[in-house]
């Protein structure tokens, strides 16, 4: 369960302010976030993930009060609870696909890399159709294949919540459908909550709910 109450966050650099009076998402739900660019969708994702800290208000994810946690605790919480997928994949060129998927284990001591994890990598990669590409480098993959690798990396830690920031923004419609099918199958199987930012309104029917960020903007800006 995700709960947000009276959230207020302001970027000091440009003065943009995000206000979310009230937001609740049930466990296992698939929710689409829409809204114009600059309306705060990515900012809310970063707040939910504990990358940013709100100036006021309350954020609770999977029963933990994220906003009140100290830095190190918030980072540990993010590692154990949240998987993130980015629009431009953010894979590291110098690592193989397998190493990119295992990256959260390489850089976090809190996670233990054992045989079970390796099996999970194989299983996820097979399910996402990149099972035979694990030894390749990202540069040798197509856009769609790279995004599948990024999805693998987000899911390998078996997070309770996946935050996907326009993961299909760089994909063609056919690849978008294939990727969403695969992600939905995996999150439904594990009961993972899935929040996704998208500008593609044709995809909204496939989600349980849609949250329009226009609702969070002041009347004058809508």
């Amino acid at each position: 369960m995700i709960e947000v109450e009276d959230l207020l966050f302001t970027y000091e650099s440009d003065g943009f302010t995000l206000r979310v009076p009230d937001l609740a998402v049930e466990d296992g739900a698939k929710v689409a976030f829409i809204g114009p660019s600059g309306s705060g969708k990515t900012t809310l994702f970063h707040l939910l993930a504990g990358i940013l800290v709100p100036h006021s208000g309350r954020i609770s994810v999977a029963g933990r009060e994220v906003s009140g946690l100290p830095d190190a605790e918030r980072r540990r919480f993010r590692i154990g609870t949240i998987g993130m997928i980015f629009q431009d994949f953010e894979l590291l060129d110098h690592l193989t696909v397998r190493e990119n998927i295992l990256l959260p284990y390489y850089v976090n001591r809190a996670l233990t890399l054992d045989g079970g994890v390796h099996e999970r990598v194989e299983e996820l990669a097979r399910a996402l159709g990149i099972g035979s590409y694990l030894r390749r480098r990202p540069a040798a993959l197509s856009h769609g294949e790279r995004q599948r690798a990024a999805i693998c990396r987000a899911l390998v830690t078996e997070p309770a919540l996946v935050l996907a920031d326009e993961p299909t923004g760089n994909l063609d419609p056919r690849n978008t459908d294939v990727i969403l099918d695969l992600v939905f199958r995996l999150v439904e199987k594990r009961g993972t909550t899935f929040l996704m930012v998208t500008h593609d309104h044709s995809l909204l029917d496939r989600f349980d709910r849609t949250i329009d960020f226009m609702d969070f903007l002041p009347e004058a800006e809508r």
Partner: peptide, 16 residues
């Protein structure tokens, strides 16, 4: 910078 940001987003500490 981008690579470092990615690492931090997936939970890597500044120390790491």
């Amino acid at each position: 910078k981008r690579e470092m940001e990615t690492l931090m987003k997936i939970g890597c500490s500044r120390f790491t």
